[in-house]
Structures are given as C-alpha cells and as structure tokens.
C-alpha cells in the first residue's frame, strides 16, 4: 500500500514536470511564431512601389495586403555579378536547368553581327551550325530591316550555359542575361546553383519582384 503511494507520488511528480516542460516549450514555439508574424520588415520594394503595395506603412504586421507574401523569397541571378561560368547549366537540380537565357529587346542593338549568336571569328553571317555559338541552336535570328536582325530565344532548347551571354556582354549591349525562370524553378530551400556560383550572383529576391532584368539590376515587379 505504502509502495503504491510512493509510486503514485513519483508518477504525479513526473506528470507535473512533464506538463511544466510542455508548457514552457509551447510558450517558446508560440513566441517563435509570433515573432515571425510580427517582427519582420516590409519586403515590398522601396519607393513608389512600396507605397502602392502597402500605402507606406512601416510594418507588415499592420498591413493586410502583404502579410501573406511577406518574406516570400525566390532565387534569382544578378546579371551584373554573373561571370557566365557555365555552372547554371550543370548544377541545377532539374535536368535542363531552371536558368535560361533571357533576351531584353529594349537593350538589344539588333546587330547584324551579334556576338551572342555567332562564333567569334565567324565570317559568313548565316545561321549554319558552324557559325552559331549556342550549342543547342536555341537562338533564332530573323531579318527585320536592313541592317537589323531580331534575336529570340527558344527556351525549350536553352540549357542556360550562358555562352551567348558572355559574347553579348563582352562585345555587345549586354541585352542577353541569364535568369531563373520561375515557371520551372522548384525554389529549393538552398539553391544548388547558388551554392556553387563562383561570383555569388544568386540571391533571394522578393517573390513580388522575382526578376532582375533592368540594367541597374533592380527587381522587376510582375
């Protein structure tokens, strides 16, 4: 009888300790949750864009429109840092990388001799295989008017090797850039290209402005 009593006492003591620890942990987890919810800075782009999104309020906690997307980040590649090492083509978890070459027509000079299209030293400017720099022939060249040619990228063929980007930024206007295409990107917790990017060009940008296509590498809002 006595033994039973002590056992009960031990049990209840144990039970008390357990509920105490449980309570403490719950408080801790709740604190973590509250902190993530409240203690965040506005992720909206600065300037007029920010005003548009959340009417200039300093904190997302008071801003209903941005709570859901607050802190949502996606991977993107900053073309101003990119050195076109070619790893985007090989290091993505997806076969046929999520990084593709993107052409910015507004920056394009519509050159007849495009260094993003032709092999260096190409003499005959036609789209024969020996003249093209793209290993998969993903760039299309179309005559617009003398002496201008339009270039477009077939993303289903582009492997993101960046050879054309290298040529265009070295000798041309730099209208070709590599970008993470968000219809393909699975947004890994840690981007496996970013991990091995030698020039530290990958960073997480706000999901509301997921592309870095402007010359100054500001984010492009959708």
């Amino acid at each position: 009888m006595n033994e039973l009593k002590t056992r009960d006492a031990v049990q209840s003591r144990r039970e008390f300790l357990r509920s105490f620890l449980r309570g403490a942990l719950l408080v801790g987890l709740a604190g973590l949750g509250v902190r993530t919810l409240l203690g965040r800075r506005c992720q909206a782009a600065s300037g007029s864009e920010r005003m548009k999104l959340c009417k200039g309020c300093p904190d997302v906690a008071f801003c209903s429109s941005a709570v859901l997307s607050a802190g949502r980040k996606v991977w993107q590649l900053d073309p101003s840092k990119c050195t076109q090492c070619g790893r985007c083509a090989t290091h993505c978890v997806l076969q046929s990388s999520a990084v593709k070459c993107v052409h910015r027509p507004a920056q394009c000079g519509y050159c007849r001799l495009c260094f993003g299209f032709f092999q260096p030293g190409a003499t005959i400017l036609n789209s024969a295989a020996e003249n093209q720099i793209c290993p998969t022939g993903a760039i299309r060249r179309k005559f617009v008017e003398e002496p201008y040619y339009e270039y477009t990228i077939d993303e289903s063929l582009c492997i993101g090797c960046g050879r054309c980007v290298k040529g265009c930024s070295a000798f041309g206007n730099g209208s070709l850039v590599l970008q993470v295409r968000h219809d393909r990107c699975v947004n890994c917790n840690e981007c496996s290209i970013a991990r091995d990017c030698p020039s530290d060009a990958f960073r997480q940008v706000s999901a509301t402005t997921p592309y870095l296509l402007k010359p100054g590498a500001e984010s492009v809002a959708l």
Binding site: L68, S69, R72, V74, V102, H103, R104, P105, A106, V144, E145, Y148, E150, T152, R181, H182, D183, C185, N187, A207, P210, Y211, L213, V220, L222
Partner: peptide
C-alpha cells in the same frame, strides 16, 4: 517593327 515584350513567368502565388 515594334519591340517584343519579355515573358516573366510568375512564381507560385502566395495563397
């Protein structure tokens, strides 16, 4: 000739 636009596929929406 008018400049073509750039397609910028959006990431998954927040909802």
């Amino acid at each position: 000739y008018s400049l073509p636009g750039i397609s910028v596929p959006a990431p998954r929406v927040a909802s």
